[in-house]
Design a protein around this nucleic acid. Structure first.
Length: 518
RNA sequence: GGUGACGUGACCGAGUGGCUAGGUAGAGGUCUGCAAAACCUCCUACGGCGGUUCGAAUCCGCCCGUCACCUCCA
């Protein structure tokens, strides 16, 4: 069964076919770096990290682009709204780029902690002013934009007459007009309230500004993604991702810009939108103030949660729901996620053991069994013919990918992992049943488990044991053995620790340890 | 007001008209020096009212409730 993905543009699941095999272009709207990322901000990156990992597993060469928005944009098209980056910079007496750099670094750390592979290209909006200006010029040349007082606006009604504005979010311009507020400042420059800024004239107090053909200013909010995705992925690429809240107006405007420029495409073939993280049913957001930053979540600095939750637990929590469903945050849900996560991790160790045992068994069996056993066909006498266990394993293994292929349903895939793990546990505790499973089949199943857990879902073991304490425990056994003159044990412990690069030192004060200097 | 989602057992959360989702919690059991893990069994739910169908959590209608977007937002 091939991979199918839900395309917001067509409102249906579509079988995934790369535009230019084997390369797959993937663009994800990245963060605006003026504050700490919260849990809601993490969902998209985690989801699209899994998508990237899975596409690579399937053999595609993914070029994953995730931008950094470090250009100050006004809030909305209003002049009284303040550029958040400039605001943060003023408040902290910093150069705006210092603020951007600081939070960019933090963002990367948080994403790495969550097990997200770094994007292949992480373009910064501030580094692509030239490309953005060029795109504005194209749109102007094509007649879909106009200049007023050093600002350039996208002419939505004109564009709508030729293309269709609202094709992604299923909106109609007349209805949008009916719902438009007309009391916003700066609206007088626009011919239509629906028009949006491609380039904004900057007053001298604005901290982030660049020269342009229309005077000093800064690019419109939607422009960078259109310009940078085109630069690195081409005029039409495979997948564009982002949060559901970006569908309108951000992605809608991106499409309009790309259509109206020299691209003349909807930018991406497939538009994918992840749903929101909610708290008590309400969306986690900056404006509502109900957000929990990732560092606070990892450290347990929250009022609503009873304790800290590690990055991998959080990742598992996010993947336990399908990406298009909202996921509600609660202490109970995180507790449950943590136990489930640890169960999967224990499974990883069991899988290693089973694999090792099976490999030994296969080596032992191979010389003896030169001729393979003939397959018993529909054996009526035996209720559990030998190949039934293999067959069951094969089905459970195939199930892992059924969920992933169905619009990246990680929830289903995780359920399948638990089913497979139960089988492993049963086999591990029932030697007779284990003996019935051909080693090759078992190895295949364990490899699939490991691959899905670590390579595709990106879940890594987080060691919780304290190495120093474990070492001290070992040293106490050492001291005990030494007191008992049980020198065979003493030598054993010494040798084992030496393998770890640690030497035991018997001093007058007691037993101590040091790193081996060899 | 417009657009689009969603309401599943104690909690979280999948569900392609008929076939056990899964995790967590709870109860009982197996195993066990203790404990844990694991395994087995149980608790078998789909907002309400109608309709279509041999059969609906799944399709249709109405109602109730919740949410998101329409303003920066993942």
């Amino acid at each position: 069964m091939p991979l199918s993905l839900y395309n917001t543009l067509t409102r249906q699941k579509e079988e995934f076919q790369p535009l230019r095999p084997p390369v797959v272009g993937l663009y994800l709207c990245g963060p605006t770096v003026y504050n700490e990322a919260h849990l809601g901000n993490a969902r998209g990156p985690v989801v699209f990290d899994v998508l990237t990992r899975y596409l690579r597993y399937l053999g595609h060469t993914v070029r994953y682009v995730r931008n950094i928005t470090d250009v100050g944009h006004l809030q909305g098209d209003s002049d009284n709204g303040e550029d958040p980056m400039a605001k943060a910079a003023r408040a902290q007496q910093l150069e705006p780029m210092q603020v951007a750099q600081f939070y960019t670094t933090r963002y990367r750390q948080n994403m790495a902690a969550l097990g997200c592979l770094p994007p292949d290209i992480e373009p910064q909006a501030s580094g692509h002013i030239t490309e953005q200006i060029a795109m504005v010029e194209e749109i102007l040349a094509n007649g879909f934009a106009y200049e007023v007082n050093g600002s350039v606006y996208f002419d939505v009604p004109k564009y709508n007459a030729e293309y269709r504005y609202g094709q992604l979010s299923n909106r109609v311009t007349e209805e949008l007009l009916a719902g438009t507020r007309d009391n916003l400042a700066g609206q007088d420059e626009k011919r239509s309230p629906l028009d949006f800024a491609l380039w904004k004239n900057a007053d001298p107090t604005h901290l982030m500004r660049w020269p342009s053909p229309w005077g000093t200013g800064f690019p419109g909010w939607h422009l960078e993604c259109s310009a940078m995705s085109r630069k690195y992925l081409g005029t039409e690429f495979d997948i564009h991702g982002g949060g559901l809240d970006l569908m309108f107006p951000h992605h809608e405007c991106e499409i309009a810009q790309s259509q109206a420029s020299h691209s003349h495409t909807a930018e991406a073939r497939i538009w994918m939108h992840n749903n929101m993280v909610t708290v008590n049913g309400a969306k986690m957001s900056k404006s509502l103030g109900n957000f929990i930053t990732l560092p606070d979540l990892f450290a347990g600095n929250t009022l609503t949660l009873s304790q800290a939750y590690s990055p991998m637990v959080v990742r598992f929590f996010l993947l336990q729901a399908h990406y298009r469903s909202p996921i509600d945050l609660s202490d109970d849900a995180l507790q449950a996620a943590r136990k489930g996560y640890r169960k999967l991790m224990n499974g990883l160790r069991l899988v290693d053991k089973l694999t090792a045992d099976a490999s030994l068994a296969r080596e032992a069996a191979e010389p003896a069994q030169a001729a393979p056993q003939p397959a018993t066909t529909a054996d009526h006498a035996s209720p559990t013919p030998p190949q039934s266990a293999s067959h069951e394993l094969a089905k459970l293994t195939a199930d892992l990918f059924v969920g992933l292929n169905d619009d990246l349903n990680t929830a289903r895939s995780i359920a399948s992992l638990f089913n497979l793990l139960r089988k492993f546990n049963t086999l591990a505790s029932t030697p007779a049943a284990l003996a019935d499973v051909p080693a090759a089949d078992l190895i295949q199943a364990t490899a699939a488990y490991r691959t899905v857990v670590t390579d595709i879902l990106g879940l890594q073991d987080e060691p919780r044991a304290n190495a120093e304490q474990l070492l001290n425990l070992t040293l106490s056994f050492y001291a005990e053995a030494k007191a008992d003159k049980a020198y065979d044990k003493v030598d054993l412990i010494r040798a084992a620790l030496k393998c770890q690069g640690i030497v035991i030192k018997d001093t007058k004060a007691g037993v101590e340890w040091a790193y081996s200097e060899e």
